[in-house]
Write a protein that binds this DNA or RNA. Structure first.
Length: 488
DNA sequence: ATTTGTCGTTAGAGCGTGTA
DNA sequence: TACACGCTCTAACGACAAAT
């Protein structure tokens, strides 16, 4: 160890060090607890594996600002020299801060590897020296000692020198660790060729349904908003909470222990009407009655139409009861409900291959999923408050849902649509849905892209496909005629 | 276009750890 | 003591699907 105090010898040594490739650097600070901390000494190790601390140079730079600046300019800023520090951000406060180049922080390295992997109790330099590098007799006392006093004691100088020795040893060990844990190389993502024509980046099953019902309405809705539901005015009651009503029905089935007792007898002993009646009763008392009260208190005219909704829900419950009894053949009473109603993430995503060889993302969320043990098949449920205006559009919508889910599940998925006002059940088997999803949907999606990007007065406006008598109740009939003109 | 509910991302507050 | 950094947790924000 060389302890250098004279300006000339320090500058000479700094000049020597500029040819080094790597240096292990540490500092000691006097008055660190005060407003005006002073850099006391800079320790530099030039050779790793120097347990005898032969190649440590200690520069005494207390209050010698020109020497400190010289060190910073010659060593710290020089990008050719790698400087290794423990908790480098601390030393850099006195040695060039943001100007310093090519700094390696062993604390950062150690943190990245983690305490657990290193199997050490903490990441202090002294701990790493003892627990990672097996140094014994590591001195801790002098760290907080008075580095402003001169002359420095032999003990202080020994401590200061050993710090860099530990630093180099720890550094070597950490390098070995990070080499051993080479992370999987970063996967180069192929740059996606951006299409010159601006096309919708993704579509939804709901939009697809609309595209089948009326492309013009799809277009108007996309650009100008407005309602898309074809409804006779006398049908319309506010059942925006309709999905909530169904949600609560299924939650009730899943969470109410009473229903387990209901399914205690064997399947052959169970009677659909009886089961359904029980569910209806409980649901009416728990959920629907309160909803009815609340709605009619706001508007007493709602009572009559809401009773129609109830009639629909009752029939829905019968359907559920039938399915549950079928499945009771295969499940015990405790599990039949949870095995029938499958609760999981309802989001769906799929990239459809279009006829023009491009791909289009379709995103959607289905309503519910059940399993029928007799058919050994999943079945996706879609709820509609009102009768569909166009059955083929409805079919297309559930075909997309079924198809996307079947891709996830790697299994066929049937679909059923329940309409509540008035109650009607539409069952579609996977065999017909798959055909539609394969043959019809990709072409429709391609058309939709064209329709949605169409700008008046370019040719090929979206056709009006809806039947004329239904167009009379189109929610945007007026706008459609004024925008597209002619027949609707 | 606007709204509504859900869900995932992100900024930042707070805490712990490191330095003399 | 003071400051920097990173981790975690949360609140705010925005994206999204579906409905109006």
């Amino acid at each position: 160890m060389q302890y250098l105090t004279g300006s000339i010898e320090i500058i000479t040594k700094i000049n020597e060090l500029t040819s080094a490739k790597i240096l292990w650097v540490d500092t000691e600070i006097a008055d660190w607890y005060t407003e005006k901390p002073r850099l006391s000494i800079i320790q530099v190790l030039t050779k790793a594996n120097d347990a005898a601390s032969q190649s440590v140079y200690i520069f005494d730079v207390l209050d010698k600002h020109d020497l400190i600046s010289y060190f910073i300019n010659q060593i710290m800023i020089n990008p050719q020299i790698e400087k290794v520090c423990h908790n480098a951000s601390f030393d850099l406060k006195y040695l060039g801060s943001i100007d310093a180049q090519n700094i390696t922080c062993t604390l950062k390295k150690a943190r990245r590897i983690s305490k657990e992997v290193l199997q050490v109790s903490n990441l202090q330099l002294k701990t790493l020296a003892t627990e990672l590098c097996n140094f014994s007799d590591v001195d801790k006392e002098e760290q907080g000692s008075d580095w402003g006093r001169r002359p420095l004691t032999q003990k202080q100088l020994k401590y200061a020198a050993m710090d860099t020795v530990y630093l180099a040893a720890v550094h070597q060990r950490l390098l070995a660790f990070s080499k051993a844990n080479v992370l999987t190389p970063v996967i180069e993502v192929a740059p996606s060729s951006t299409q010159p024509v601006e096309k919708p980046k993704s579509l939804t099953p709901n939009k697809l349904r609309l595209a089948f019902e009326c492309p013009r309405l799809l277009y108007l809705n996309h650009h100008f908003g407005g309602s898309t539901l074809f409804l006779q005015t006398e049908d319309v009651i506010d059942i925006s909470q309709f999905h909530n009503l169904v949600d609560e029905l299924i939650n009730l089935l899943l969470n109410k222990p009473d229903f387990i007792e209901l399914f205690r007898p064997s399947a052959s002993e169970l009677v659909v009407e009886q089961i359904a009646h029980n569910i209806q009763q409980l649901y009416y008392n728990r959920i629907f009655y309160a909803y009815l009260q609340k709605a009619t208190s706001k508007d007493s005219k709602l009572a009559q139409p809401l009773l129609k909704v109830w009639e629909g829900l009752k029939k829905l419950i019968i359907s559920f009861a039938e399915l549950l009894i079928i499945n009771r053949n295969y499940c015990d009473a405790e599990n039949v409900i949870s095995e029938t109603f499958i609760v999981e993430d309802r989001k769906l995503e799929h990239y459809f291959n279009l006829p023009d060889n491009s791909q289009l993302r379709v995103l959607g969320r289905y309503d519910y999923l059940v399993f029928n043990f007799d058919l050994n098949r999943l079945c996706l449920i879609e709820f509609k408050a009102y009768q569909p205006v166009d059955l083929s559009a409805q079919l297309a919508q559930v075909a997309v849902y079924s198809y996307m889910l079947s891709q996830n599940k790697k299994a066929p998925v049937d679909s059923v649509v329940y309409c509540i006002l008035p109650f009607k059940e539409y069952y579609y088997s996977w065999e017909q849905l798959e055909h539609i999803a394969h043959e019809l949907i990709p072409r429709k999606l391609e058309q939709m892209q064209q329709w949605l990007t169409w700008r008046a007065p370019l040719p090929n406006p979206p056709p009006a496909t809806i039947q004329p008598h239904l167009c009379q109740i189109c929610p945007q009939q007026q706008k459609c005629q004024s925008y597209f003109g002619g027949s609707s």
